[in-house]
Every structure is written in structure tokens, then in C-alpha cells.
């Protein structure tokens, strides 16, 4: 069974302000991703738009709030919401993050980091088992963008993700911008990360823009802001990924300072070009 049902072409994160433009002419975009938490209401425009779009495009549901890396149990109410959404929408893919966002009943609206060791591995794998049981389908787990490291980590992120995937059967979502951001922030080699990544488990790629800041020592500190074009070195890193992976579903994320449709479509077109290059390499 294929690890993804999404088309091996460009997709974008769906924003309601692009609804009319997408229905008019979505090219080159072939699929859409929504944030699960924005579509758990009972009705109204969000649900009506999603129903309509789902008749025309494969939809990827991307959760941003389940807190898979949380110390506490998963929120059963939220699991039920995700199950309801997957039941009626029957999306082509469901993905979530290697991160936590809820603690002690409080949702913090950010993707927070966790150390990588035997204890956190067991916890994350248990939570993914629980989610996959609840929604009745395999999920893709996304690598985070990191701003700091933990002294009690005992394995690398790629080792951690590979082992979670092996234990739970989940696929992986490789966010190429996150690789670049984390590698820059933690002084790692992004190409080595890509070389170490279990590509046979990848069902989707993400690309987004980042902002540049500095830490206390004047070292670059990149912030995963999703508020601008994808940076050139991230496109270069994408070529490296595609050379190993071959063509794959490729998503452009642009969540803050959302641009007009032609600007977003131009980013998707750049992604399409990279995918075409990769396909030609495979064929050659």
C-alpha cells in the first residue's frame, strides 16, 4: 500500500481568502491542505467551503493541536473531533507534528519541543497508536523546527523519527524548511540530516518561509514563521531531497501575512518545476 494518496504534485495550505481564485483556476495546485482545528465546527461557511473544495481536490488534513509529544494523555474530546472530521471528509492524508502543545489542560497554540530518548519515544509511539486507532487510518508525522536542544536527548531526530515510524507504522512528513531552520539553529549539517532521513517512509513534503534573528551570541536564529517566500537555500535543499526521494506531494505553507493567490500560485509553480526536474532524473 502506498504511503500517501495525495498527488505527486504541488499543493498549498488553504486560506479562505483564496476560495474564489482556487475555484476559478487553481493551476498548478493539485491538492489542498487544511488545519484540522479550523474545521471542527458544526457548520457555517468553513464547513460548506470545505465540502465544496473536497469535491474538486484531494484534501490533506493537517493537525496542529493534538500534542502528540505531550507528557499527558491525548485529549479524548480532540481525538473524537479528528475522527468526526476524517469520517465525513475521508481525506487523502492526515498528518500531525512531533511536538507538544497542551499541558495540564491548557493549550498553548505553539509546537513545543521535546527531548529524544527512550522514554519520549515510547510516549510518542503510544500516542500515535491511539490516534491511528481513533481515526482508523495511518498518519504522517512531521519533523519540527527547533530553536534549542535538550541535554537529556540520547538520539538524533532522524533516528527518533525512523524508530517511531517502525514501531507505529506511521508515515513521515518531511518539512524541508524545518530541516534547514533546525540545522542552522543547532549547527547541524542539513544535507546529512536529509541523507539520514528514512525516505522510504515519506508521504509528503512541506516548504515554507522563515524569518531571520540572532541568539545571545550573535549566531543566526531562524524562525519558522510561514510568512514569506521559501528561501533560496531551502529550494536547493529540496533538490537534494527530491534526488533521493523522487517526485512526491509537495506543499507550500504560507500562514501569516497571507499573499494574494497569484503570489502563492507562483511558489507552487516553482515547486512544480523542482518536481518535474526530479521526475525527469528518475526517467533518465
Amino acid at each position: 500500500m502506498s504511503i500517501t494518496k495525495l498527488p505527486h504534485g504541488p499543493g498549498v495550505g488553504y486560506k479562505p481568502q483564496h476560495y474564489a481564485a482556487i475555484l476559478d483556476d487553481a493551476a498548478p495546485v493539485r491538492w489542498l491542505e487544511i488545519h484540522a482545528e479550523n474545521y471542527t465546527g458544526a457548520g457555517g461557511r468553513p464547513i460548506a467551503q470545505l465540502r465544496h473544495l473536497a469535491e474538486r481536490f484531494p484534501i490533506s488534513v493537517h493537525g496542529v493541536g493534538l500534542s502528540i509529544g505531550g507528557e499527558g494523555p491525548l485529549d479524548p474530546d480532540h481525538l473524537a473531533r479528528l475522527k468526526d472530521l476524517c469520517d465525513w471528509l475521508n481525506p487523502a492524508s492526515f498528518s500531525e507534528h512531533l511536538a507538544w502543545s497542551t499541558h495540564d489542560g491548557a493549550f498553548l497554540n505553539d509546537l513545543l519541543p521535546l527531548p529524544y530518548n527512550a522514554a519520549t519515544l515510547t510516549r510518542v509511539a503510544d500516542h500515535i497508536d491511539a490516534l491511528q486507532d481513533a481515526i482508523g487510518r495511518p498518519m504522517l508525522l512531521e519533523n519540527p523546527s527547533s530553536y534549542l536542544a535538550f541535554t537529556d536527548s540520547t538520539m538524533s531526530e532522524t533516528e527518533f523519527l525512523a524508530e517511531v515510524s517502525r514501531r507505529t507504522g506511521c508515515g513521515l512528513l518531511l518539512d524541508v524548511n524545518n530541516v534547514f531552520v533546525s540545522a542552522t539553529n543547532l549547527g547541524l549539517d542539513a544535507r546529512q540530516y536529509v541523507a539520514d532521513f528514512p525516505m522510504d517512509r515519506v508521504g509528503e513534503l512541506h516548504l515554507g518561509g522563515h524569518d531571520e534573528d540572532e541568539d545571545d551570541h550573535g549566531a543566526p536564529l531562524l524562525i519558522d514563521s510561514h510568512g514569506r517566500e521559501v528561501a533560496d537555500p531551502v529550494w536547493t535543499l529540496l533538490d537534494d531531497v527530491l534526488a533521493r526521494l523522487g517526485p512526491a506531494p509537495l506543499l507550500i505553507e504560507w500562514d501569516t501575512d497571507v499573499p494574494d493567490w497569484p503570489t502563492l500560485a507562483a511558489e507552487a509553480r516553482r515547486g512544480e518545476t523542482a518536481l518535474t526536474r526530479a521526475a525527469n532524473r528518475v526517467a533518465a
Binding site: N109, Y147, T151, N185, G187
Partner: peptide, 29 residues
């Protein structure tokens, strides 16, 4: 404690990125 940069130095303002994300995103909401 236990949070560092890539070279093992204290995380310092790197932690503030998360602090800022939480406060700003919830305030904007």
C-alpha cells in the same frame, strides 16, 4: 535547565522564541 544551543551553551533567548510564539499567537487570536 537542560536547554542548550547546538554547542551546549545555555539556551538563553532561544527559549524566548517559544515564549513569544505563545503570548503573541494567543493575543492575536
Amino acid at each position: 535547565p537542560g536547554l542548550t544551543d547546538g554547542a551546549g551553551r545555555a539556551a538563553g533567548r532561544r527559549f524566548a522564541v517559544y515564549r513569544n510564539n505563545v503570548a503573541v499567537s494567543l493575543t492575536e487570536a
